[in-house]
């Protein structure tokens, strides 16, 4: 008998004989703030910086905001960057990346998190290995809470997806919060400038 069969057999023997059904979906109360405002508030709480960018301001923004970033990988069409495909398969080049610019598929207002799926990532390690992360969020893609995000995702055919809610952090040394553990040292949320 394989371990698989042993385990399944033990479960059948030991599990409760009466099963409850899955609960109804929760009817969530409305949050106090509209999604855009809530998202802004929560991302700040998570340690993100918030900026607004007009289409022609990108280059100036990168120059001003990240003067010491030499290796820039951009996955948004407005910015060119100076690292390309050759970076993806090479650990050493990846480890030297200073800045990644990427678009979020979705943002979750309640947690201040953003969702990036495989389709946007030429290699999965990118948002974790860079020193600084800049994520473009379009207000139309902000959902209220996590359950609204999952309502958008198709269970079949998932490959890889990551919810990121701020720069990496730790408090493992005497509970002192340190921003920048193993992942990025900073995270910036960029949204379109309001006219």
């Amino acid at each position: 008998m394989t371990s698989r069969d042993k385990i399944l057999e033990a479960i059948r023997r030991n599990k409760p004989q009466v099963a409850n059904s899955l609960p109804e979906a929760i009817n969530f109360p409305d949050p106090a703030l509209p999604p855009l405002q809530l998202f802004r508030e929560r991302s700040l709480q998570n340690g993100c910086a918030l900026i607004e960018v007009a289409p022609n301001d990108w280059q100036a923004l990168i120059d001003n905001r990240y003067p010491d970033c030499t290796n820039i990988l951009s996955l948004i069409p407005e910015v060119e960057g100076n690292c390309g495909r050759e970076t993806y398969g090479d650990k050493t080049s990846l480890a030297q990346l200073d800045l990644l610019l990427i678009k979020a598929d979705w943002a979750v207002a309640d947690s201040g998190g953003i969702w990036i799926s495989d389709q946007r990532l030429p290699t999965r390690v990118l948002p974790f290995i860079v020193r600084h992360l800049l994520v473009w969020v379009h207000p139309d893609n902000i959902v209220t809470r996590l359950s609204d995000l999952y309502a958008q995702l198709e269970p079949a055919g998932q490959s890889f997806g990551i919810l990121i809610a701020g720069p990496s952090k730790t408090a493992d040394i005497e509970q002192s919060l340190v921003i920048g553990a193993h992942g990025p040292l900073s995270m910036t949320i960029a949204m379109p400038a309001i006219r």
């Binding site: 998570n46 990121i164 809610a165 701020g166 990496s168």
Partner: peptide, 9 residues
């Protein structure tokens, strides 16, 4: 309120 990384593999 949330973890920084919720990774779905």
């Amino acid at each position: 309120r949330t973890a920084i990384y919720n990774a779905h593999y």
